[in-house]
């Protein structure tokens, strides 16, 4: 297959100090992701899903082993380079939406572009486009505390997608949403995955999410238990 490999993890291990001893959250993980995947890390609580996502998002570094994201060795990046990588190429979606409370919806989405020093006109166009993807143009000037949970998470998607990142990392994005909103979010993300070829990587134990995934990586106690590809997944309604 000639599809571009965008993430490669080799023997990634993450240990946390635990008093006298150490706790191993990830053990020798070997894993690769390719452009356009819609994949999920699935497993019980404490299995290491978030830890793995954070390493791929360059928010954390492996204790040993190598994580290469978009050709960059995560462990070797300076603070500046890793910030740059996140700003331009990685999008994050969190379980709690982490919207910036004093900013409007528009400003929340605009933020990453401001950091990129994008010119004002282009920025405005780009922000509205992103709001359009998630159907929130009408709420552009509301503050986050006036939004429903579903709307809040859609803003978070727009904020993560506005810079058209290569990879979007979503840590339990549906955990705080009701079923209807969860499906709406997932459909939105699947559509963006189809249209923009963004690679989506989820962490979840939500059955609804799993229904959408093209690949499910089962984690248990910091190890990969099963890596299954789901063929010809029909888009759920």
């Amino acid at each position: 297959m000639a599809i571009e490999e965008i993430i490669r993890l080799s023997e990634v291990t993450k240990r946390y100090p635990m008093g006298e001893t150490e706790f191993t959250a990830l053990k020798n993980i070997n894993l690769a992701f390719h452009k356009g995947e819609f994949a999920g890390l699935v497993g019980p609580s404490g299995s290491g899903k978030t830890t793995l996502l954070n390493i791929m998002g360059s928010l954390d570094v492996p204790t040993t082993g190598e994580a290469v994201v978009l050709g960059q060795h995560i462990s070797k990046l300076s603070h500046k380079a890793s910030a740059e990588l996140r700003n331009r190429h990685l999008g994050f979606i969190f379980q709690v939406f982490n919207l910036l409370p004093v900013y409007t919806v528009y400003e929340n989405v605009e933020f990453a572009l401001l950091l990129q020093n994008m010119p004002a006109q282009e920025r405005k166009k780009t922000v509205y486009e992103a709001l359009d993807w998630v159907g929130l143009t009408a709420l552009a000037h509301k503050k986050p505390d006036k939004l429903s949970g579903g709307e809040g998470q859609r803003v978070a998607i727009a904020r993560a997608m506005v810079k058209r990142p290569a990879i979007l990392l979503a840590d339990e994005p549906t955990a705080n949403l009701d079923a209807a909103n969860a499906h709406l979010i997932l459909q939105t993300m699947k559509r963006l995955n189809d249209e923009l070829k963004t690679t989506f990587i989820f962490s979840t134990h939500d059955e609804k999410v799993m229904g959408y995934l093209g690949r499910i990586i089962h984690l248990r106690d910091g190890c990969i238990e099963l890596d299954e590809t789901i063929k010809n997944k029909p888009l759920q309604r």
């Binding site: 998002g57 928010l59 603070h79 500046k80 910030a83 740059e84 996140r86 700003n87 331009r88 994050f92 969190f94 709690v96 982490n98 910036l100 409370p101 933020f111 990453a112 950091l115 990129q116 904020r159």
Partner: peptide, 16 residues
Amino acid sequence: QREIGTYIALGMTRWQ
């Protein structure tokens, strides 16, 4: 803290 983490996730450096 979460806001700080979010700024960093969005691509600010810690010193920023």
